[in-house]
Design a protein around this nucleic acid. Structure first.
Lengths: 123, 123
DNA sequence: ATTAAAATTAGAATTATTCTAAATAGAGAA
DNA sequence: TTCTCTATTTAGAATAATTCTAATTTTAAT
């Protein structure tokens, strides 16, 4: 694996943010001042293809990159904030019903996050 | 609801395809020769916002529009073909675990469709 | 018929991402 | 080391889906 690929993998694995290619690029640029956005895209695509990281596609905003730990995502429909959740049961259910051939899945639950959810009573 | 919005809703509701904005536009254009792509996008966005249809975002291909019947999607990782599936249990599981605030969810299961799945034995 | 509001049109603009071709770097062989 | 081959990176143009802007048309209400 190349120097840049390693650095990018490390950035993705060491944050709890869900970073865009551009954010990763800017973080890298602080150390590797000569790096270029296309290189970041190249490496992110390679890392996804190798199954070392995952890409999260979102409506109307650029793709995010995330570590591979099996988990799902809550997306606030109002502010767009992304939060991790984990449904342990789901893998099993999917495998029971689909059997052979299933590779992975992508679950996004749209909700209103506590900040955006209207309170019934003002305090 | 306007004439075009109605026609677009009808197209989406009367097909089992998962059509792109462009495909819908081309279908409409056969009857309404003066219609323009931006109108189709406008109406599709409006119909989504109203919750009358749903949008499916896919990696590296344009968004698709689909009827609202609650169902999930199988995406073949090789050929990209989209198939409907239905996990009745899932809504319940999600609600149990998340309680209030959940609006909807979007589940894509990546798999290899029968055509793309390697056969263990040739016949 | 007049006005106001909403929808549609035309086409430019935006934005994320990919592509192309040239430059550079790295690895292995001589 | 020096040469050669291959992979990576760079720079910037190209692409493609979608949105935006402003002008025009349609619709509905007065």
């Amino acid at each position: 694996m190349t120097k840049y690929a390693k650095m990018i993998l490390e950035i993705v694995n060491n944050t709890n943010e869900h970073m865009t290619a551009e954010q990763i690029f800017l973080a890298l640029k602080k150390i590797e001042t000569k790096i270029v956005l296309a290189t970041v895209y190249n490496n992110l695509n390679m890392l996804c293809a190798e199954g070392l990281i995952r890409k999260i596609s979102l409506e109307g905003s650029p793709d995010r990159y995330d570590k591979i730990l099996k988990h799902d995502h809550l997306v606030c429909r109002k502010c767009g904030k992304l939060t991790d959740i984990c449904f342990n049961d789901l893998t099993q259910i999917l495998e029971e019903q689909l059997g052979e051939g299933i590779l992975s899945y992508d679950l996004k639950v749209l909700y209103l996050c506590p900040d955006c959810r209207p309170k019934k009573f003002k305090q």
